[in-house]
Design a protein around this nucleic acid. Sequence first.
DNA 1: AGCAACACCTAGTGCGGTGGTAGGATTTGA
DNA 2: TCAAATCCTACCACCGCACTAGGTGTTGCT
Lengths: 175, 175
Amino acid sequence: MIFSSKAEYGVRLMVELGRQQPELPVSLKAIADAEGLPLAYLEQVVARLRKADLVMSARGAHGGYWLARDAAEITMYDVVGALEGTIAPMECFVHDQMERVVCSHQPQAGNGPCATKLLWTRVQGGIVRSLQTTTLAELVEFSRRSERESQSTAAQADGDATPGDDGATLEIVTA
Amino acid sequence: MIFSSKAEYGVRLMVELGRQQPELPVSLKAIADAEGLPLAYLEQVVARLRKADLVMSARGAHGGYWLARDAAEITMYDVVGALEGTIAPMECFVHDQMERVVCSHQPQAGNGPCATKLLWTRVQGGIVRSLQTTTLAELVEFSRRSERESQSTAAQADGDATPGDDGATLEIVTA
DNA sequence: AGCAACACCTAGTGCGGTGGTAGGATTTGA
DNA sequence: TCAAATCCTACCACCGCACTAGGTGTTGCT
C-alpha cells in the first residue's frame, strides 16, 4: 500500500468540501456521515490540511471547514504532501544539508551512489508528476459526473475520465 | 515509504547479478558481503525472484544464482512486481472477478465510484510507467558508470543519468 | 445565562506487517 | 565425507497505522 488512509480520507474530505459552495462552513460530522468515516480520526486528518493552509475553519456553532482557495488552484501534490508528509520511494532517499537527494547507503571505499538511486528517482518523478497535474477541481468534476451517470444508468462510469489521462487497468499481481 | 526493503534488496541483488558474466553462478554470500545485506534475509528475497523466473539457480558447492535472461529484457516492473507483490496505491484498489479495477468503497445507494479513484489510477499509471521503462541493463550501466566516475574524481555523479530521464530533485517535505 | 454544536488538542492502544533470525534439510563438487 | 551452497519453514520483536478516549475552547441560539 503506497498511501495511508490519511491520504485517502483527506482527499475524500477535500472533494467533499469542493462540492459545497465556497466559503460556506461544513461540519466534520456532516462529512464523516456522508463518507462513512470515523469523526475523531477525521479531526486529525483535517488538522494537517489546516496547518498546510489548504482549508480554513470557524469554531463554535454552525462552524466548520471550507477550502482556503479555489479548487482549481489546489493540486493533489499539495494535498497528499500535507497528509502523508514525506513521499520518498525508499528510506534510501535522504537529503544532506545541501538539499541534494543522496543515497544513504554509504558508498564505502567511495564507489559511487547505489544503483537503485536511478530507479527510485524515476518512480518518485512519476508519482510527483501525477500528483502535480491533478487538481482538486478535476476530482470534484469527476465526482459530480459519476454521480450523475449512476443516477441515470448503473452502467460504466470510468472510460472517459479526462483528456490526457489513461484510464488503464494497471496492476502488478504476483504475491 | 513506498517500497519495502525487499524491493530495494532485490533490485540491488539483480544489479549485482547483472554486473557478472551471464550464466556464471554467483553465491548469495558474495552478494550479501558486497552489499552489506543479511544473508538469511536475502534468501527469502531471491526466492521470490526465482519463482518469478527472473533468476536461475544451481545448488551445491560452487552453486549460486544468475539472470534467467538478458538484463535488457528485464524491466523493473518485473522485478519490483515479483518482490513487492501487488502494487496498489490504496487498498481502495481491488479488482472484481472480471479483472476490472474497481473501488472497494461501496457506492451505497449507487452513487458511482469514489472520487479518489481517478487520482489513484493516475498515480498508479505514473509508477507503472516508470517501472516499465527502466530496464535492469540501464541500472547496471548506471552502476558501472558511477563506479568509474568515483574512481577518478569524488565529484558529482548524477546529473547525466540517461537521456529521456529527468534527474530532478523531487520531494515533498511537510511533516 | 445556559446549552448545544462545533473546532481543537493530547494521550493511549490493539493489531498487523516489516524485517529480520534460527535451525534445519537437501544437493553438489572436491 | 566434508564443505559450500541452495532451499524451506517457523518464529519473533519492533513500530507505525488506524483508530478511540476524553477532554478544553469558542460560538450561536434561545
